[in-house]
Write a protein that binds this DNA or RNA. Structure first.
Lengths: 144, 144
DNA sequence: ATAACTGCAAATCTTTTGCAATGAG
DNA sequence: CTCATTGCAAAAGATTTGCAGTTAT
């Protein structure tokens, strides 16, 4: 999905495209990894120093309403945000080294599914975050 | 693992067993579901009205140090806490109706594992939370 | 006895909100 | 023109911290 698609989804739902909103979405769109609120604010302030924190928070609501936002909540760090651009249900492989996150498609194992079925549990949604080191960071670590 | 085991783990690491700490741990131990900070404080205040919020927060650090704490962070609710009593890596099936959580053992699917291996991603840890309705809540919902 | 622990109050950090001004459609 | 959006400042909520007094070992 390219950037204009995102903007169209926004407009089709009746939201206005303000300069701030465009920058706020760009920040996520052009980052190759989920970003913290601090990084988000920094990016946007670079493009428009007047952008206010509360504007970002309000746009989080907008992006959630559009179903375009992924929130990632590592155990030991602040929440991070990313655009959710694939229609398929997916999860992130998150590198503990460089922070890069890659979306991968989800498949709960059959064994898992069986356990859940046996309990007659009606599964509605799930959240899976995978942490480790990407190939590049792994190689760097080995060298040092 | 029974309650005394938990206390022994605590003492073996050199922590003291104070009245407050005992109550704080009891609250988690005797709850059949992960509890919010609010519920946690309420339980402890019932047993000892002087217990302070910051004491609970400080004991979170202790329990984490002991590797006994699970934090569950639903998308739309506050963090919830539970004791992590099984040695095996496991995850929670969390009921959106009654809040009850059941630990289940984890098994990432082979397909999943293959995707990760193909990327040469060095997986260190993962976090999986499953939400839905338990049998009882599901039945109740159907009736109404 | 003494080091760990706690309560309290204040500090810090994150997120939300009311309101008046601004700007997109 | 009109209503959504924004900036600002203040509020609310969550978590942490310094300190002096208390308690388990």
């Amino acid at each position: 999905m390219d950037f204009n698609n995102v903007i169209n989804i926004l407009k089709n739902k009746g939201y206005k495209l303000t300069n701030q909103r465009k920058i706020i979405i760009e920040a996520l769109y052009f980052s190759n990894k989920p970003i913290s609120m601090e990084e988000w604010l920094q990016y946007t302030k670079n493009k428009n120093p007047n952008i206010n924190l509360s504007t970002i928070y309000r746009n989080i609501d907008v992006l959630e309403d559009l179903g375009l936002l992924s929130k990632i909540r590592p155990k030991d760090e602040n929440v991070k945000y990313a655009l959710n651009l694939s229609e398929k249900h997916s999860h992130f492989l998150i590198c503990k080294g460089c922070g890069k996150a890659e979306e991968i498609e989800c498949c709960l194992s059959k064994e898992f599914q069986k356990i859940i079925d046996d309990k007659e549990f009606d599964l509605i949604e799930h959240n899976l975050e995978l942490y480790g080191y990407c190939k590049e960071c792994h190689n760097k670590l080995k060298k040092s």
